[in-house]
């Protein structure tokens, strides 16, 4: 008797497995089609619609969208008011990214290099914990903390440093009656909310640096500070770049924090919200929405040019 293969009994699931095993391309298709549909139609599709909308304009008189391609809407982006909105958002995103990086690096370095076992788990939880509670709740909490009657003002006044804080709050750009109505408050809240997105990529990058590289550097005569500058930091740059992409783009797009905390001057997110809502000017909202996308594209191009991803 000659039997081929099939040592096991041919159950239905067994023969289905064999069917798939013999058709690797089918398996690939089954795996890829759902995410590609999602990405292609729902995500790219809506992005394209957005792009298309931005090339239409609105009739000032009837407030109806005129479906004819025009650059007029984009031209309106370059009015002084709109440019200041873009510049304000860009500056805030940059400041938030830099501060997040400065705070996140030592923390990520400690978690990656020194903490182990329970301590590491504890740090992970500490970094992630804020993400487990509602975003709005946390922002409102900061509004209270930063308010004139809040914890920070109270602490600083108790230390007798109230005049210093008041003086800082009268500085140009900062200007606000309290922390919760100044850019300082906005920045603090942004940094707090986005910090985990900076810590985790840096920590992951540092985690991937093998101990032997640090030993090799030390072995070749480098003191700890030189090893840090020549080996550890360069190898952490892809992590810093990844983290900064998160903090930068999340700040560019956010409209709730600047709405609740800080001066009432609008950011890009608020502008989009107002144009598509109250004003009903969908083309203008779309044009504004394109701004963070373009800025991010430029940001990534610069990061790549500077070699931020070379060590990947």
């Amino acid at each position: 008797m000659t039997t081929t293969g099939a040592a096991r009994p041919r159950s239905l699931s067994n023969s289905f497995s064999t069917f798939l095993y013999q058709r690797p391309r089918l398996v690939l298709a089954l795996l890829l089609v759902p995410p590609l549909l999602w990405l292609g139609i729902i995500y790219l599709g809506s992005l394209f619609t957005l792009l298309a909308q931005s090339f239409f304009s609105i009739d000032d008189f009837t407030a109806q969208t005129i479906y004819e391609p025009t650059l007029a809407t984009y031209a309106r982006l370059f009015t002084a008011t709109n440019l200041s909105i873009i510049f304000r958002t860009l500056a805030m995103a940059s400041v938030v990214t830099v501060i997040s990086g400065i705070i996140a690096f030592p923390l990520a370095y400690y978690i990656a290099r020194f903490a182990s076992g329970r301590m590491k788990a504890l740090f992970y939880v500490a970094v992630m914990l804020p993400l487990w509670s509602n975003y709005l709740v946390r922002v409102y909490a900061w509004k209270l903390i930063l308010a004139k009657e809040g914890a920070i003002h109270w602490s600083i006044n108790s230390l007798g440093l109230g005049p210093v804080l008041d003086w800082i709050l009268t500085l140009p750009v900062v200007e606000g009656s309290s922390l919760s109505t100044s850019y300082i408050g906005t920045t603090l809240t942004f940094v707090y909310i986005w910090l985990p997105f900076m810590v985790l990529p840096i920590q992951a990058a540092l985690e991937r640096v093998p101990r032997s590289l640090l030993e090799a550097s030390s072995d070749l005569g480098a003191r700890p500070n030189e090893t840090f500058r020549k080996v550890i930091f360069p190898l952490a740059i892809p992590g810093i770049a990844a983290g900064s992409i998160f903090t930068f783009s999340l700040t560019l797009g956010d409209y709730i924090i600047p709405q609740l905390i800080g001066s009432s001057r609008p950011f890009i997110g608020q502008a989009v919200y107002q144009f598509q809502g109250t004003a009903g000017d969908i083309p203008m909202a779309a044009a504004f929405a394109m701004v963070p996308i373009v800025i991010m594209a430029i940001y990534l191009a610069i990061a790549k040019r500077l070699g931020a991803f070379d060590a990947l």
């Binding site: 093998p210 032997s212 030993e215 090799a216 550097s217 030390s218 072995d219 480098a222 003191r223 080996v231």
Partner: peptide
């Protein structure tokens, strides 16, 4: 290690 006049070839090479 950085003050010792010895050098090491590592098992995993440890190239930067």
């Amino acid at each position: 290690p950085y003050d010792r006049d010895v050098n090491t070839v590592f098992q995993d090479y440890a190239l930067f």
